[in-house]
Amino acid sequence: MLAASLAVKVGKMNCEIVGKVPDTGLYLDRMGLYKLTKTKSPFSYNMKEPAGRFVPISIIKTAQQQSDFVTDMIPLLHLSEQNSRIIKYIVSELIRNVLEHAKSGSGAIVAAQYYKKTNRISIGICDNGIGVWRSMNESWHPITDADALRLALTPGITGTTRKEGGTSENAGAGLFFIKSIAKITRNYFVIYSGNAEYTLLRHRKRIKGFPRLYADPERDPHNQTNSAPNFQGTLVAVDISLDETPEFQTLLNVIGKVYDDAIRERKRAKYKEPKFI
């Protein structure tokens, strides 16, 4: 996804794939990476239909294209009704995030892959926009890229305002919801922007019941760095295990409660304290 994003950024005629590409590079061709460069694909093969296996790299620049993509991608992945709801939800919110916050002329670059053996779907979405730090800095002034990611993942915090409840257009819920869906379904969630990367680690299967959700992403089991190679833009990747997926309403129940509690606690933290002398 990063390579695709960079190719889109510099333009097809300014981008080529150099050196010997191993046979596994065929996958990159099938996903559409070569089409974004001036390099002719060295692979020749019988192209099978992507249906049931993957959604090739797509570029989405408008809300209408987003709607069309979401409508078209679900049949490609052959999902059950229950799973399709969750995938539609995640893809819609991730693309919307890019269109609203990234300020990228090249739009959202998105792809998905179904893995039959593990019965999971990996979704990647990337942009060449202003990055999370600049987006959050409009209202919150984070010091580092890692601080900006933490804010972006915190429920009720949006880069567009410091007001509780957000604006008429943004509530600061999108990434928290998606990270929470990944956590409850015991999957990975990764966000990478600027020099920072945050990876939610998979919740161990032997622990029964729903994994506990936290408003503060620092409390989730995760890996984090603030010294990754600088990426001007944002990448989000999420895995969804189709076997582990509970009813969507059940997911929403759990996520909604944590979201409420987070807002309540943040409001209480602003209350004036009596002065005891």
Partner: peptide, 23 residues
């Protein structure tokens, strides 16, 4: 449907929390 009911309810609740209403 139940999914949409749940999402509407979440939005109603957090908006009231944010605005300081009795939820």
């Amino acid at each position: 449907n139940e999914d949409i009911k749940k999402i509407v309810t979440i939005v109603y609740r957090y908006m009231q929390e944010s605005l300081g209403r009795d939820t």
